[in-house]
């Protein structure tokens, strides 16, 4: 099977998956009591039946369910997620404006967790019975066991209120003027605490899996052979063992996209990060249906793309993955 065909198949399949996500979410919103007309009429300080009916017509809410669903899917196929009356903007625009902030947060957190996790894992794998192993285990478990928003609040109080090392909220300081690097450093300073908070949940996963697979690889025949050939311990660990141990870690990281997005919702709430999470929360409270549907759709899209990228990354790290699923 050619690689192109594999990719094509996966794309077709991803699209089917997305359609299924759309249908389920649309159905859910339809089943719920009350609708967007209620929200709008409230924002107008009350409305009479005539206005309510008018809103329902303009939203197509008077049509049978199947017609509404069909229209919606047809619109989404043209990248039109509808208009949000609540935000007075097209949903696609609204989401695309927020998406970069969330992606930045999520990717920074994942990379931080991966790097730190792998390093911790390697350290503890090389001395499985040493003190460092216990320290690593505890450190990693702390992030996993503490509620992420709680970790965030504690970090915020410690590093923003008490020692002023990092700014409190938002993604950048708009009053700063300067070139690219000035802004880069500014965003990095804002990003640090949220990314560490979000990454802390996943530290445990990556460090423990690295440790386990390292120990397995270190015990395997070909590493023993390599050692027998006279390679130094460091060479063995970093050139051979780690490379082989990485692929399960990457697989796992790929599976976490949905979990990272979930964590991001909470972290964004704590740090007023201007991403999809804060948008989602506000939309859910206001039941801004088009925006909620749009965000669920985009999140699924991000997860699917994340999975595809993981596949690609795996092929790079471990060419053996090629044919199998």
């Amino acid at each position: 099977m050619g690689i192109l065909r594999t990719i094509l198949l996966r794309v077709v399949y991803a699209i089917l998956l997305l359609v299924a996500v759309l249908v389920l979410n649309f159905l859910l919103m339809h089943l719920a009591p009350g609708d967007v007309a209620d929200t709008i009429s409230q924002s107008m300080g009350g409305a009479d039946q005539e206005i309510l009916d008018e809103i329902r017509v303009s939203y197509g809410l008077d049509q049978p369910f199947i017609v509404q669903l069909g229209r919606y899917i047809a619109n989404v196929a043209q990248f039109d997620l509808g208009y949000s009356f609540f935000y007075n903007q097209p949903v696609t625009k609204l989401i695309l404006e927020r998406l970069p902030a969330t992606l930045l947060l999520v990717i920074a957190a994942q990379i931080a967790a991966l790097i730190i996790g792998v390093v911790l894992g390697v350290i503890s794998a090389r001395k499985p019975n040493g003190l460092s192993n216990y320290v690593v285990t505890f450190l990693a478990l702390f992030g996993y066991s503490a509620p992420v928003f709680w970790t965030g609040i504690l970090l915020l109080i410690t590093f923003s209120l008490n020692v002023h090392w990092f700014p409190v909220a938002g993604m950048r300081d708009v009053t700063i003027e300067g070139g690219f690097w000035v802004h880069f450093i500014d965003v990095a300073r804002h990003l640090f605490l949220p990314a560490v908070t979000l990454g802390s949940i996943f530290l445990a996963l990556y460090s423990r899996l690295t440790r386990a697979s390292m120990m397995e690889v270190l015990g395997s025949d070909y590493v023993r052979t390599a050692k027998a050939k006279g390679l130094t311990s460091n060479q063995v660990v970093y050139k051979h063992a780690l490379k082989n141990a990485l692929s399960p870690v990457i697989t796992l990281a790929g599976l976490q996209f949905s979990a990272v997005l979930s964590g991001a919702v909470l972290v964004e709430a704590v740090f007023s990060w201007p991403g999809l999470g804060t948008l989602a929360f506000q939309s859910i409270i206001a039941r801004d249906t088009p925006t909620i549907l749009g965000i669920l759709f985009f999140s699924a899209l991000v997860v699917i793309i994340g999975n595809l990228l993981t596949d690609l990354a795996l092929r790079l790290v471990d060419p053996r993955v090629g044919g199998q699923k």
Binding site: I153, L156, V168, A169, G170, F271
Partner: peptide, 12 residues
């Protein structure tokens, strides 16, 4: 600036 968390506003 839009900061929704009251504690974060207070610190700011």
């Amino acid at each position: 600036r839009i900061i929704t968390d009251p504690a974060a506003r207070a610190i700011a």
